[in-house]
Design a binder for these strands. Structure first.
Length: 749
DNA sequence: AGCACGCCGACT
DNA sequence: GTCGGCGTGCTC
């Protein structure tokens, strides 16, 4: 028999070893290895035993057979990765710049294949009457344990094993007799832990309106045919979920499975329930609260065909369905779909890639699509479906007014509440209705600063202000540095030093002093800590236990409060000034969402947007709930300044312990890229193509956070209309001679 | 990354 | 003379 070899990726995160290594398969492992399995291998001069993943097989090695070592063992506990997911990992490594092992590990989010929990039951095999007679016998014999057991068994035909041994305190010795006599039998059921249990499927039909039907038939047609990516633009309350469910039904009917991605914060009980009611036991859910074991159970259920639908956040994208047919990405504009850790993949692009491999289709849905997705829909890259009316006829769109805070200031009003908002708050309370006060969080961090010199207390290792924590200590979010609040200002020595507190706390206090009779509830990290804290606050408010709810982002995502008729947005434009070209988009999305919280039932809603930039298109378009107007303004701005989605952008981050080294290396890359730009210009003949292929370099500049953990950080941006040129540039940079003291990171947009 | 091999200074 | 510093190079 000829020798067998495997291609293995070694579990070491370093570019120097980020390639395939070949190992010989010993005979005792023949037939036991498959793609994606985890193996133990001797590695390096010292033959240290390390983990690796099988990514391929071969009979003839590409390496000197003399030097090839043998696979030591298989890690049988670990679940193998599907072949397609390995391919996907390879694509992610290329596209997002990571090592193969990092990409493999994101695609394989589970550590251990857990043994299924065995559930044991004691089942009565005789009639209730017979059991009752036997009970009488043992009562006479005064055998208490057996009496307890028989009482329970008379009552219920099936008893869980633990209930008998623990709650009833009947030992196995006591009921063994009954097992032998055939009074009852011991059943074991191998079942996977299911986070949702005892939910019965209630097939319910919903009435679909014209727009919903059009979207469904259009998407179904695409699925039956070319499986083009679809973008569903439907205003809040237009019934996107019903459309998803109809499409999923179609996909399942064709023997395929579906993944539904939802941003973690929006993964509410209500949303998930709707899927359960529709599809029952064939649905599963993963989220960050699930234990590793539970998570891996859910993936195993998907792999073995026990479920058809997986609902979850970004990571659910890698559910190992054998015959994936559809990926739905709800609230597609959410930033949560972009991974913050390497590989910094985007769920939308990755979903499209995965679907292309599996011949499946992607559906994106949002009330406020990202400029990038809408742009692609406009260009015909995605199919666009619009739903402009609310599914429930009676609910009306809220009326929105903008208050110019500069006018307030001129009129001598220095509080954060405009006179108009104050007035409406009072009216709302008088009508016994509820109000939401939404605070745009950016710019309100809980840092400590000096009242004399204005300097904020900074981290000694990073270029950021320290933030005050619950325990009163000052902490650095980047490196974890911790210190007590200083008694005097570190830069000028003044004793007048104090925190600004969290924004919501301040607002809460101000509402209390302004409207002493109002019952105010605050929702932030402090009031929601501990599990269920989140839901507890929301439930209390929904129950009418408070009149006003003050909070940030959290209160505007996917919660329905029928009695809320007033929404106040305190400082609408704070997010406009945050850096990054997406500031306008963020602001529009946030405002639109917040405004959508008012008057969702029969009561008419009112929204007050307070702003210092009331004529900014993001604010105006949000007030008139006009997505198109926002989009055309935004895309004009992006085109003008060469930002995505019109241009592709690659950002490079250089980090080094020596400040000069990082800057020098960034400069070197810029120089090289300059030549590269010329190279492109020379090669392309036509002027138009030249413009398209030309790469624009911006920087190097200090990063927004210029120092983290004593490492200096410099950024460089490369922009181009053709993504291909950027990828080629990336390739070139990777081949450059590199200063060993400088590390770099890519980010593609 | 992590380990071995190797080539120079200060110690038993 | 040898022990050990870390710089350099390789890993199937």
């Amino acid at each position: 028999m000829s020798k067998q070899y495997v291609n293995v990726i070694v579990d070491i995160v370093h570019t120097a070893v980020d390639r395939v290594f070949q190992y010989e398969v010993p005979e005792e492992l023949f037939g036991k290895l498959s793609l994606g399995m985890k193996v133990r291998i001797p590695f390096g001069r010292g033959n240290t035993v390390r983990d690796g993943y099988i990514i391929g097989f071969t009979e003839k090695p590409d390496y000197d057979p003399e030097k090839i070592k043998q696979v030591q063992a298989v890690e049988e506990e670990a679940m193998p990765i599907e072949g397609q997911l390995i391919q996907l990992a390879a694509w992610m490594k290329e596209h997002y710049g990571s090592t193969m092992i990092q990409a493999l590990k994101t695609v394989l989010p589970l550590k251990k294949k857990m043994k299924p929990v065995q559930k044991k039951y004691l089942v009565r095999t005789v009639s209730q009457e017979a059991c009752c007679e036997l009970l009488a016998v043992y009562r006479r014999k005064k055998q208490k344990a057996r009496v307890r057991f028989l009482e329970a068994l008379t009552e219920d035909e099936v008893l869980p094993y633990e209930a008998v041994t623990q709650r009833l305190r009947v030992s196995p010795a006591s009921f063994r007799l009954f097992l032998e006599e055939g009074i009852c039998r011991l059943d074991t059921e191998e079942r996977y832990r299911n986070p949702v249990r005892g939910l019965l499927k209630k097939e319910q039909t919903f009435l679909l309106n014209e727009e919903q039907r059009a979207a469904i038939s259009g998407m179904t047609a695409s699925w039956d045919g070319k499986k083009e990516t679809c973008l569903l633009h439907g205003i809040t309350g237009s019934g996107k979920t019903e459309v998803y469910m109809e499409l999923i039904r179609h996909v399942i009917k064709n023997g395929r499975q579906a993944i539904v991605l939802i941003p973690e914060i929006a993964l509410t009980y209500q949303t998930v329930m709707r899927f359960y009611r529709q599809f029952g036991e064939r649905v599963s859910i993963v989220n960050s609260r699930l234990s590793a074991g539970e998570k891996s159970d859910q993936f195993e259920r998907a792999r073995t065909g026990k479920i058809d639908i997986m609902i979850g956040p970004r990571s659910a994208l890698f559910t190992p369905f054998p015959n994936l047919g559809l990926i739905i990405i709800d609230e597609e504009h959410e930033t949560a779909y972009k991974s913050e850790t390497v590989p910094k993949y985007h769920a939308i692009e990755t979903a499209i890639k995965r679907c292309r491999m599996a011949d499946a289709m992607v559906v994106l849905g949002s009330a406020t699509p990202s400029a990038s997705s809408y742009y692609k829909a406009q260009n015909g890259e995605y199919l666009l479906f619009q739903m402009r009316s609310r599914a429930k006829e009676e609910s009306m769109l809220p009326s929105v007014e903008i208050v110019d805070l500069r006018e307030e200031l001129k009129a001598g009003n220095r509080t954060i509440f405009s006179r108009r908002l104050k007035e409406l708050l009072k009216e709302t309370l008088d009508r016994k209705e509820q109000a939401l006060l939404f605070l745009n969080r950016r710019g309100y961090a809980g840092f400590i600063s000096c009242r004399s010199c204005g300097e904020a207390v900074k981290c000694p290792h990073c270029d950021v202000s320290l933030t005050q924590h619950r325990d009163g200590k000052l902490k650095c979010h980047y490196c974890g540095y911790e210190t007590e609040i200083p008694k005097s200002c570190p830069s000028c020595g003044s004793h007048y030093i104090a925190g600004f507190g969290t924004g919501t706390q301040k607002v809460e206090a101000m509402v209390r002093s302004m409207l002493p009779e109002a019952r105010v509830l605050r929702m932030d990290a402090d009031t929601t800590k501990g599990k269920g804290g989140h839901d507890a606050v929301l439930a209390a408010f929904a129950d009418g236990k408070a009149d006003i709810l003050v909070g940030t982002q959290m209160i505007v995502k996917g919660h329905d409060f029928p009695n809320v008729t007033l929404v106040g947005i305190l400082a609408a434009d704070l997010s406009l000034y945050s850096e990054g070209y997406e500031a306008g988009e963020r602001t529009f999305q946030l405002l639109t969402q917040a405004a959508g919280r008012a008057g969702r039932d029969k009561l008419p809603g009112q929204v007050v947007i307070q702003s210092y930039a009331p004529s900014h298109y993001s604010v105006e378009a949000a007030a008139s709930q006009d997505y198109e107007s926002f989009y055309w303004h935004e895309i004009l701005y992006r085109r003008l300044l060469h930002y995505p989605p019109v241009y592709h952008m690659m950002s490079l981050l250089f980090t080094s312990k020596e400040e000069n080294a990082a800057e020098r290396m960034a400069g070197k890359v810029k120089e090289m890229a300059g030549e590269f730009e010329g190279h492109f210009k020379a090669e392309t003949e036509e002027a138009e193509e030249q413009r398209h292929g030309a790469v624009e370099i911006i920087g190097p500049a200090k990063a927004a956070v210029s120092r983290i953990n004593d490492s200096y950080r410099y950024v460089l941006y490369a922009k181009c209309e053709e993504e291909q040129s950027l990828l080629a540039l990336k390739e070139k940079i990777e081949q450059m001679e590199w200063d060993r003291n400088v590390l770099y990171q890519f980010d593609m947009e």
